[in-house]
Design a protein around this nucleic acid. Structure first.
Lengths: 134, 134
DNA sequence: ACAGTATATACGCCAAATGGAATATACAAA
DNA sequence: TTTGTATATTCCATTTGGCGTATATACTGT
């Protein structure tokens, strides 16, 4: 049921041709996130987010893991050279969408910070690896 | 009538998400070409080629100039950093489509060679700049 | 003016992608 | 077992994109 076809360049391009999906991937490159936080950051309805994540997962660009009721999504870095190269390029380029990506990263940071401060309910893998060696 | 909207990254991605269009751009990066030669190289019907060229022209990725009955298409290099970066990336990468691009370049070379040898009817700007200083 | 070659556009059709409402599933806690 | 929260899936309507046939346009040579 869970068949993943071999990833082609055109698949990657088709994927990031959608600004919303590109923003998701840009965020995931900065750290794993659960669906509800992605929703919050991009301000999109749950259905849409869920569907977009599902399509990218099937493509093999991202993977999901469960943590309680949360689903944590993260980038699959192997075989994603093309994607990573583009994200890197866009983060330093000049265009509408590029600015959006930078803003998203800032909002992401703020979100992480807020979670840490307010101590609100949140999956652990979303938080940055706090020094694991005490 | 000829309005060109400002080019966004997603426009570029949408464009190169189509293998055929990507192949065209890859070829044009190697040198200007007229419609009939592009048709010959990619083996697609005239209508299809013409439409794809039209769409990329409207996007601002390529430009056209007339030479007799021929229309010569060439890359617009300004503002195409993202495109060029991807073409360069793909030419040195490993995937189905990447191989296709390399093959196309070889066929392009052969075409140019054949034209030079057989002296067949052909727009000048398609031929490589033969040493202009005698 | 006419015929020929090269290219573009219009129109109609079908496949694929998108978006939302409703519903289903998975898990946790009481 | 019930309730609540998080997420996924189904169904349906709409839009978008690609493709082919036929036709139009632009130019050249006679």
């Amino acid at each position: 049921m869970e068949y993943t076809k071999t990833m082609e360049a055109s698949d990657v391009y088709k994927c990031i041709a959608d600004t919303q999906r590109l923003r998701i991937l840009n965020l995931l490159e900065a750290g794993s996130l659960c669906v509800c936080h992605l929703q919050e950051l991009l301000e999109v309805p749950q259905v849409k987010m869920s569907k977009q994540l599902a399509s990218m997962k099937q493509l093999g660009l991202i993977k999901a893991s469960r943590e309680g009721t949360w689903m944590i999504y993260s980038l699959v870095t192997s075989d994603s050279g093309l994607l990573l190269a583009n994200i890197e390029y866009l983060r330093t380029a000049q265009c509408q969408e590029c600015n959006q990506l930078k803003q998203d990263l800032l909002r992401h940071e703020k979100l992480i910070q807020r979670i840490a401060e307010t101590n609100e309910d949140c999956p652990e893998s979303v938080l940055p690896a706090t020094c694991s060696i005490s």
